[in-house]
Design a protein around this nucleic acid. Sequence first.
DNA 1: AATGTAGGTGTACGGCGTACACCCGTCAAG
DNA 2: CTTGACGGGTGTACGCCGTACACCTACATT
Lengths: 238, 238
Amino acid sequence: MAEQAETLRRTPLSRDRVLRAAVALADGAGIESLSMRNLAQDLGVVPMALYKHVANKDELLDGMIDVVVGEIDPPVPDAGWKHTIRSRILSARQVLRRHPWAPLAIETRSMATPAVLAYLDSMVGTFRAGGFSANLAHHVMHAMGSRILGFSQELFDASRQAGRSGATEPEPPAALPPEVAARFPHLAEISTAASHDDASVVGQGCDDQFEFEFALDLLLDGIERLQQQDWTSSRRPR
Amino acid sequence: MAEQAETLRRTPLSRDRVLRAAVALADGAGIESLSMRNLAQDLGVVPMALYKHVANKDELLDGMIDVVVGEIDPPVPDAGWKHTIRSRILSARQVLRRHPWAPLAIETRSMATPAVLAYLDSMVGTFRAGGFSANLAHHVMHAMGSRILGFSQELFDASRQAGRSGATEPEPPAALPPEVAARFPHLAEISTAASHDDASVVGQGCDDQFEFEFALDLLLDGIERLQQQDWTSSRRPR
DNA sequence: AATGTAGGTGTACGGCGTACACCCGTCAAG
DNA sequence: CTTGACGGGTGTACGCCGTACACCTACATT
């Protein structure tokens, strides 16, 4: 085994290898175990060696985000803006499902990385090509917020939990414990109200994918309506 | 001044005093300078003293969130669901503007605190009282996501930045630097496309409040439409 | 006066990010 | 063939963090 480590160590480090190892570590063990020391150990190297390839931990995280964003599918050609946007966002969502730490990391970064900017730019391009005014496209991008990257934080979110402590089991939905249900009757009520009728879902845990698409389509439909009536913020009511 | 510290120290610590001091520290110096040690110093006390009032730092953060959530206005009585929800959310937004670290803290917590649950429960109650089915209310809550608490992370967000390093100046919008604008033409285009016509805003930085309300109303209008047509997920297209 | 207890103290440990000096292999110029 | 620069891995050390654990002290209760 020492030999194996030896062999691995001979492959020289590189920024790319560091970033990939960091993503793998975060995927496998959770973002909270991503320390420079752990990462170095995974690479069979001493912690300070990493600093020859990334300036510091912040830059490491930026690089990891770029790796993830790079996995999002390119836009489908020759389709209407609505379909293009929708399927790209759903692709982004698939990517983030493979890297559950990423939403939190993206939110935490203060400024967008170049890869994120490129992605956003291309999304705006799709809207513009679909006939959106620059003004409407601006507001629409704001309205989409993080959803345009395939996630939206949920407040009572299990996937976020997963993002933290590594790839443990999906876990039974863990419906709210009875004493909580008693104190918050409305929450209790709606928590069981999403049995998507077809009882394909085992527990009464709700279908994340459905909820995501529900919200996404709510927005896209509203946006379509605005665009069809040439909405612009300079004509806003008040 | 030693005397002053002395006097302050005589006022005995309490969970409440600890939480308030923590909120004040985060407000004033940014969430990243909220350490048990700094907080203890502010209170004129030794770090370990805090642990007699909060179990650990996570519980401290939970308590801080509860303080913030407690500042949100109660629901306005005798109004339609739409107005009630809308104004409550805008109130939450005002609160969060006073505590720019809070969104990040809330997102970071793994499970909702009792105060957050109570708030959510009351929001669901408003929908139900407005004639929403439990099913629709469920999906609607998901669709609102963090927006129901008055924030939505923006990806290219300045307020989030502010949340980190304390209450520095609002800063001129820092429109994207030219070399960035060149690489991302669509972003450059829309970044200047939100001059809300009335040139009350100095720079071409966009009006956060407007963008928030734009997205909020987009959702609320879509939701209203669904409710009027008795939408339910068991009848969904596919 | 004796005793329990709530709450502030002091010391210490292990982990973190990373500054800084070092050292060693490769390779170009003399 | 020597030499010297330099890219990249190493070792040590510093200052921060959260917090376990033993202690001590002042007051309330009996």
